[in-house]
């Protein structure tokens, strides 16, 4: 049983084993099957424009999902990311409108989103409120708060090209959001896989008591994971605002569920201690390829809600079946 989803339990020496374990191979299989099936029905699936579109779609989810993966690994969850995403966009846009400075806008967005993360972290670790409930409450406060902040969308009055570039620009052939997501992914991957911080997160999620008895500051580690997730929401919120060219208070409804669905689909356990970023990447890709397939096959777009629901249940069930088989 060396095939558990922690990459450090890989069999040494196999290059493939370095990046994927058995549950991820299943996901890769699903992804490949989806791509083949969709491209057979709609050849334009592989067009450059479509691939770029899929990647751009993935970027936003992946940025936040990287933080959510860390949170789930250490045994917590954040349901407020969707509401925070919308709020961040409004604040960022507003600050840029007032100051004409992209830097200040981004800093304000990050400061706000980081504070939300910090608040969630304090509620979960100091007040010991179950993070599922605590972050639902934060979500409510943010949903209410954003409308108190602005009644309608904050329009782009500054017309900074650099701001537009954040969402719509390219460096070489790659859209800037994809590059940002790639950087976030690599940093988070390295942090989880190669640093003491990452190893400690797994430990805290696997057994908080054991981690504490071994001299780890479990609460502080969780707090950091909350803040990191918050900051990543800040990044994603600015990209979204740029893409929509406005700060939309209603944006991000249901975003938290998409993110969590992708992370869980990627094999990260809700109960903590298990999960990888590679899995999360695959989870995001599968969900977004399905989304894309529904669009280019001209199926009813409302299926975009139904399919992830089925996929997430199915994926969890497959995980249970696989673990049961492993235990024999």
């Amino acid at each position: 049983m060396t095939s558990e989803s922690l990459s450090s339990t890989r069999k040494p020496g196999t290059a493939f084993g370095l990046f994927a374990d058995r549950s991820q191979i299943v996901l890769i299989g699903i992804l490949a099957a989806l791509c083949i099936a969709i491209s057979l029905a709609a050849p334009q699936f592989y067009s450059e424009a479509n691939v770029i579109a899929i990647l751009r779609q993935c970027a936003l989810v992946l940025i936040v999902a990287a933080g959510m993966t860390m949170l789930l690994i250490c045994g917590e969850v954040d349901l407020s990311v969707g509401a925070s995403l919308a709020f961040v966009g409004c604040i960022g846009m507003d600050v840029i409108n007032r100051t004409g400075s992209l830097t200040l806008g981004v800093l304000a967005a990050l400061a706000f989103a980081g504070t939300v993360g910090l608040f969630n972290g304090i509620v979960a670790t100091r007040l010991r409120v179950n993070s599922l409930i605590g972050t639902i409450a934060t979500m409510m406060m943010l949903q209410g708060g954003v409308f108190l902040y602005t009644r309608e969308a904050v329009q782009n009055h500054h017309h900074l090209p650099s701001f537009t570039g954040l969402g719509a620009g390219y460096i070489g052939p790659l859209p800037i959001p994809v590059i940002i997501a790639a950087i976030v992914f690599v940093v988070a991957f390295v942090a989880l896989r190669y640093t003491t911080f990452g190893r400690y997160l797994y430990a805290v999620g696997a057994s908080e008591n054991a981690a504490r008895l071994s001299g780890l500051r479990a609460e502080r580690l969780k707090l950091i994971a909350f803040v990191v997730t918050g900051l990543l929401v800040g990044v994603a919120g600015m990209i979204l605002a740029s893409l929509m060219n406005a700060g939309q208070p209603t944006a991000g409804r249901g975003f938290e569920l998409t993110v969590i669905a992708a992370v869980i689909l990627g094999g990260t356990s809700l109960s903590g201690g298990r999960g990888t970023l590679i899995g999360t990447l695959l989870g995001v890709l599968v969900l977004k390829v399905i989304d894309n397939g529904i669009i280019i096959l001209r199926w009813n777009q409302d299926l975009q809600m139904v399919v992830p629901g089925i996929v997430i249940i199915l994926a969890t069930w497959l995980d249970i079946v696989r673990r049961r088989a492993d235990a024999r």
Binding site: V129, I136, A137, G144
Partner: peptide, 13 residues
């Protein structure tokens, strides 16, 4: 919404 959210956190805490 804001007040409700705050009350929930306070109550559970």
């Amino acid at each position: 919404l804001v007040v409700t959210g705050g009350i929930i956190i306070a109550a559970v805490a």
